[in-house]
Amino acid sequence: MKKTHRILGLFSNFDEATNAIYDIRADKVRGVSVDDVTLISPIEHPEVEEALGDRPVYVQFFTMFGGLFGLIGSWLWISSAQATFLVQPQGGKAVVTLVSNFVLNYEMMILGSVLFTLIGFLAGSRLPSKPGSLYSEKVSLDQIGIILELEQNQVEPAKSLFRAHKALEIREEVNT
């Protein structure tokens, strides 16, 4: 069945939110797994993210690609520019100079790494985007939110679970 419902539960502390996630992992709401859970929090919190299990991040591959691209790309760009435009004025001296080009390539490797890390960050965190209608501004204040993607018959058990963990507020959104 299609998961057409989304609910947000807001909690006052990390312990309650973490326990709610562990209950979902323990199949307390039938058919809902940890893959249906999104945690939103005012601070980064690796300990709570552990409850969500391993969710791989690929930004480091962007960084590596950027570094290699910066290194090789700048080498090709600078060397070809030197070979094209500097042959005559060099008067017999080396046109493509390894040592000084190394400095430039080093800088471009770092620039490439940083720029591609930014691209990887934006792609991985799906930015820019809109925060979404279920987003609560209270999360940027001091509350922790759990968003669940659910089928219609799972909504009430999920709300009960949130209430059992002292959810301060529960919101629901239906995608038709």
């Binding site: 999104t38 939103i40 929090s41 969710r55 930004v59 960050f121 965190s125 940027s140 968003i147």
Partner: peptide, 15 residues
């Protein structure tokens, strides 16, 4: 459009 979800924090931390 940052909202501080766990995906964003994980990527943010590493980046």
């Amino acid at each position: 459009g940052w909202r501080g979800d766990d995906r964003q924090w994980r990527v943010f931390r590493k980046a």
